Simulated assay, not measured.
Amino acid sequence: MEDEFPKKRNIRPTEKSNLPIVTLLVLVVLVLAMLYVGYEYISDSSSNSEELTSVVVDSTLEETVGEPITDEPAPIAAKTDEKAEAVKETVKEPAKEEVKKPEKEEKPAISAASVGGEEITHTVQSGETFSSIASRYNLKTATVQGLNSSVSDVKSGITKLKIQVKAVHTVGPGDVLRVVANKYGVTKEAIMKANGKTRDFSERGEKLIIPFPDRK
């Protein structure tokens, strides 16, 4: 016969676990640690900002920054430009003087009366100069130039010069060059030279130029 009261089965005792409590504590600790770290970080940043704002600005730097910046080398550059211009002017002045044409030498005018004798007109021939013409008539080059002070250059067949000679003799009967030369106190060669003769010969009615015996 079965028992009236059935036997109670063995009930497995419930085991209590502490794991949830430990986990919760760890989480709480972590949260507190994070809050602490965050607070420290915030406090440090605020203190740094206060230090930065509390830094005293150096007045000397402000004065330096406030002063207008001036370009000191500018006066030196200006002086350099002035010196360069002065050098240019001194260099240009000799150049201008070199470009200038030499002034013509004024020939002192000589009057025919001061030389004396008679005046003739000589037409310049090819190759003749003031010097050669003066030698032909036994005159000084300065005398010929002075009598023709307005003439600066002689041109063949164009230029006509005023010449002073002792006399102009018209050849008559028996007037050979030697006789005429003795009459005026000059040499026969001087008469031939003045008249451009290569031979000792003269024709009746010919006008002979008689040069001065002494060079004038």
Results as ranks from 00 to 15, higher is better:
R12E: 06
F130K: 00
F130N: 00
F130C: 01
A190F: 03
Q145N: 02
G66H: 05
T159I: 10
S126I: 06
E206H: 05
T64V: 13
G146N: 03
E106F: 10
D214P: 04
T159K: 00
K166P: 05
Y184F: 06
S131E: 15
I69H: 06
K155F: 05
V65A: 13
S152F: 00
N18C: 01
T141D: 14
E2Q: 11
K88T: 12
I69G: 07
K193T: 14
V171L: 03
T80I: 09
A33I: 05
K160N: 08
I163P: 12
P213Y: 02
T187R: 06
E2T: 06
G185N: 09
Y39H: 08
I76A: 13
T141G: 03
K160D: 01
R199M: 09
N138R: 04
K160Y: 02
D153Q: 14
T198D: 12
S131N: 13
S152P: 12
T80E: 07
A95G: 10
L161M: 03
P108C: 03
A78T: 11
T170I: 02
V154A: 01
I209P: 00
A142G: 09
S54A: 04
L161K: 03
T53W: 09
M34R: 01
E63Q: 06
I209L: 02
A86F: 10
K8M: 08
S43Q: 09
E62V: 13
E63T: 02
R9N: 07
R136V: 08
N195I: 04
L161N: 02
K92Y: 11
K16G: 03
V176H: 13
K104W: 00
G66S: 13
I69A: 11
T121L: 03
V99Q: 08
I210Q: 05
L25N: 14
K101S: 10
S156Y: 02
V28N: 07
G205P: 00
K79A: 13
S114R: 11
Q164P: 10
E119Q: 12
G146L: 05
D58P: 13
A77G: 05
E15V: 15
S45E: 15
S59A: 12
A190L: 06
I191D: 01
A113Q: 12
G117K: 07
E128R: 07
G185V: 09
V31A: 15
S46L: 07
V31W: 04
L32F: 05
R9P: 14
R12T: 13
D200F: 02
K104Y: 00
G116H: 02
E103K: 09
P20K: 11
I76F: 12
V151H: 08
I69N: 14
L61V: 14
Y184S: 07
E203A: 14
K101T: 06
N195V: 04
S54C: 04
E2H: 07
N195A: 01
F201M: 12
E50Q: 13
D58E: 04
P75S: 04
P73E: 01
I69E: 14
K7V: 10
E106H: 12
E72V: 03
E62K: 14
P6F: 10
E118C: 03
L30H: 03
A33H: 00
L208D: 06
S202K: 10
E105V: 09
I110R: 05
L161Q: 00
E103D: 09
I42N: 05
E93A: 15
R178Y: 06
V171Q: 04
D200L: 04
E103T: 02
V99K: 14
E105A: 07
G172C: 01
S54F: 02
A194C: 05
E106K: 15
R178L: 07
E93G: 09
